[in-house]
Design a binder for these strands. Sequence first.
DNA 1: GCCAACGTTGGC
DNA 2: GCCAACGTTGGC
Length: 154
Amino acid sequence: MRYWLMKSEPGEVSIDDALAAPNHTVAWTGVRNYQARNFMRDAMTVGDGVLFYHSSCAEPGIAGLAEVASTPYPDETQFDPASHYFDAKATQETPRWMLVDVRIREKTRLVPLSELRQTPELADMVVLQKGSRLSITPVTVDEWKFICKKLLKK
DNA sequence: GCCAACGTTGGC
DNA sequence: GCCAACGTTGGC
């Protein structure tokens, strides 16, 4: 059982959009970074905990709790020439980009990035490190517990 | 819109 | 395999 933080731009898919989707579940399309892809393809298992994070928006921060809801499978947008995420080097036989489904468990209060940064217990979070811009980062069990049991109870 | 930091590309 | 140039991310 592992834990992750996954960034989504609310202009693309917000926590409310994900909640409105069937089964509160969305396919995590659009990842075009190998490290982030590898986390989904190689390291995630169904049931892993996910911090659903809003990025590139007025109030960046954690917006809810979710979970990995599928095994990895190809991101269909890579095959679609009309898609912003089209990849000419990907084929059905040798897909390049894999994703998982993510199911929202709970919309929480928005825990702003600024609050995360001010929390000493979270100083080592990967997503908070200088220069970190990965859209998917691992979260330790201690960080997960602290966020769930302390920050989200405020 | 700026820009620091990082990732990717491609010539050599 | 190196590395300069370019592209992207994402907070501010």
